[in-house]
Amino acid sequence: MRRASVLVEVHVDEAAERDFTEFVAQRTHALFRVAYALTGDQHAAEDLLQNALAKAAMRWTRIEGDGEAYVKRILYRDCVSIWRWRSRRRETLMATPPEPRADDGVDPDLRLLLIDALRGLPPKQRAVLVLRYLDDLSEKQVAEVLGCSTGTVGSQASRALDKLRRHIGPALLTRLTEVPR
């Protein structure tokens, strides 16, 4: 009897592992984009995503609904709550400079400044902006993912945008407002 139950458990684990491995193979790219946007660092993004996937794998058979949304929720929360800084200030080496987009109509200098400013934001502020502008979530949805109030989301977004504006500087901000809608 004991032997049979062990066999069933092993069978379930193997099936879950196959399912999970297939999920990771299909969704790694999308999940890694989020992890990289949250950390701005190749190794930190790998660590963040690896831990999130491990946590999801433990509960894989019990996750209700979209597995990708579940992993993303862990990514955002881990990034904010147990972020591991490597040194007093994070290194800001970029593995590959972002490729310019030909048709975005955004000033290249402004885009690079914004990327630089995003990397300098505290984790929670950056998480709010990534949720808003990468995942296109509403303020209420952002609050649900981060497990905080909409007021906190609003204040974090406001502080983040203030920092971005300061980083951009008045000259580029003026050019920005002159861009036709």
Partner: peptide, 15 residues
Amino acid sequence: AVNDLADAGRPVNLA
């Protein structure tokens, strides 16, 4: 900019 930043990493097989 957020999308540019997200695209700057190199996805690896983490399964």
